[in-house]
Design a protein around this nucleic acid. Structure first.
Lengths: 189, 189
DNA sequence: TCCCTCATGTAAAAGGTTACATGATTTA
DNA sequence: TAAATCATGTAACCTTTTACATGAGGGA
């Protein structure tokens, strides 16, 4: 009979998804939650450390202590078979659409209250930010494409990386296009 | 000297943005947080009613009681000059990027663990959902375009509506394109 | 008869951010 | 000398979800 694992949050699966790929310390996971996977799910170290403890209590990960001389000791976590099974089960579990929270678009919705100069500033700032993001994503995408020739499990893992990066590029491109259209419209009126 | 309004959450501005357009009851706001504005910022009635009370205490909205015979009485809220000022100030306040939380892409990131049939099911379900959303957005966009000829404040308000809808259409189109690419890639490998 | 709509709230719990706490080593 | 990196944690607070609570009227 299979064990139940209490309430398992999405953060848990974000962490499991990273630890499934290779062993990680809490510190490393906190770094990763900024950049590569952070574009999909963000978390701070204050949330990560307790969550790792919970995952370990549930038997989904286990850690070994790595003693260090010049640096603080660290805990290296790896996924257990139960953890991998939980992650796999989550993949095909029903997905209910996550509530949208887009503060920028919310501002655009009330933009008609602002003076045109303020509105323009808001839009061009955002455009600059997304143009920078687009460039950054594209650079990483080029690197990721190199690993694509691999076959088997490892190849599929690299392909998953590549697929999520493509999404990032596609997303930023759509935002940039929309913002450029919006700025042009605003200048015409 | 201008009054300070404690900590004002993004939800507060979502509500103010709606009440600035026309008087609303809490119940109506809760409906709106599902569909039109709900695509930008979502909230439940259990969050909305207390927030309206806070906004009123801060002097940003005021309500009048509307007595009804066959239905429960309701509170009709309208924005105050201070509320409109707060909303305007928020528009040009510094915007820090909101943390990404996209459970679907997170699943794609760990998709390599699943059997191909499961992965396909996950992707085509999501594709169907976004294709439906795209159609729905496009329909509303057509209606919104009709109001675009108006001039002045009202015209700019309708333009803001139209702009956010365009964003919705653009977003859904990017997701649909990405998912179609991903499914095609998966079938090729 | 049962569920949905209208209409407003409160309470408990979960999820997430900010701040507090420590301490050695390296870089500017 | 000041700040950043490595490395782990806890506590207080705010935000959001889920559940509890009430009650009349209309439609399947």
């Amino acid at each position: 009979m299979a064990k139940r694992f209490g309430t398992t949050s999405t953060l848990a699966y974000a962490l499991l998804g990273l630890v499934a790929r290779r062993e990680r310390t809490g510190y490393e996971l906190a770094q990763l939650m900024r950049e590569p996977i952070g574009f999909m799910w963000h978390a701070r170290h204050s949330q990560i450390y307790p969550e790792l403890a919970r995952l370990e209590k549930a038997g989904l990960v286990r850690h070994t202590l790595v003693r260090q001389a010049e640096r603080p000791d660290k805990k290296r976590y790896r996924i257990t078979p139960a953890g991998r099974a939980a992650l796999r089960a989550w993949l095909s579990s029903p997905l209910d659409e996550s509530p949208a929270r887009d503060e920028f678009t919310l501002r655009v919705f009330s933009m008609w209250l602002a003076r045109k100069s303020k509105a323009r500033a808001l839009l061009s700032d955002e455009l600059a930010r997304h143009e920078a993001m687009l460039r950054r994503h594209q650079e990483v995408e080029v690197q990721a494409r190199r690993h694509l020739t691999l076959k088997g499990r490892l190849g599929e893992m690299h392909f998953a990386n590549y697929a999520t990066l493509r999404r990032g590029v596609s997303y930023e491109r759509h935002v940039v296009d929309w913002l450029r259209w919006l700025i042009a419209e605003l200048d015409t009126r």
